[in-house]
Amino acid sequence: MTALLEVSGVSKRFGGIRALEDVSLEVLSGEAVGLIGPNGAGKTTLFDCVSGVSQPERGAIYYQGRRIDRLPIHRRARLGIGRTFQRLELFTGMTVREHLAVAEREHSGDGRLWKDLAWRGGLTSEETDSVEAMLKELHLESVAESPIEALSLGQGRLVELGRALIQEPALLLLDEPSSGLDSRESAELAAVLNQIRATRNEAVLLVEHDIDLVQAIVSRAVVLDFGRVIASGPLDDVLREGAVRTAYLGEPA
């Protein structure tokens, strides 16, 4: 079986800093993989290379067997790669429902300029249903009409998640979903993520510091340190490895 996502020998440097050095990893269909490592290890850079925000200097990235590392962000999104952001990237001035609506419309591909001009640009009933279902799934019904500025950080993360999920991505990239959340909010987020994992079959690549959240979701992990992969395999094995404990958990080997 070929991998859904295959990162092969990717390198990237910023000036003199080596952010990624010959990084390779695989994500299979429906699998949840954790990408862990200390701050500055290159996790977000790798995410950016996969989602298209930046281009790797060497190496290749394949998605569903197709090379994608030169495609612009929106083309990758249309192929089924959804993502969230470590620093929230929400559409200021729009309500929660509108966030989901705009994503759903991109997913259904129903938008045409002539339809807009013929006053037929509103959501179809299937699209509306899908938006309602997503609001319900993420428990966002009560804030559906709120502008995004009025939401808490945790709710904002849920909106980002919903915006990605409503497009039914085959691969979901989650960039530190728990950063800035307190432990209760983190636990709630883990519950939502698990519920989603149980009902859908998206593959997930998760960057996360919170080991509890990682353990709650992923079965396999890849550890980065100073831009290199220093360990990978089943999560429990990886966490037991000495090098990982030194690099990540700060314990002496």
Binding site: I73, H74, A77, E89, L90, F91, M94, V102
Partner: peptide, 17 residues
């Protein structure tokens, strides 16, 4: 809606296609 999204965050707008 696309324009409103772009005005809010170009990066996020691109990330939904």
């Amino acid at each position: 809606r696309q324009l409103a999204a772009l005005r809010g965050s170009e990066l996020a707008a691109a990330s939904i296609g």
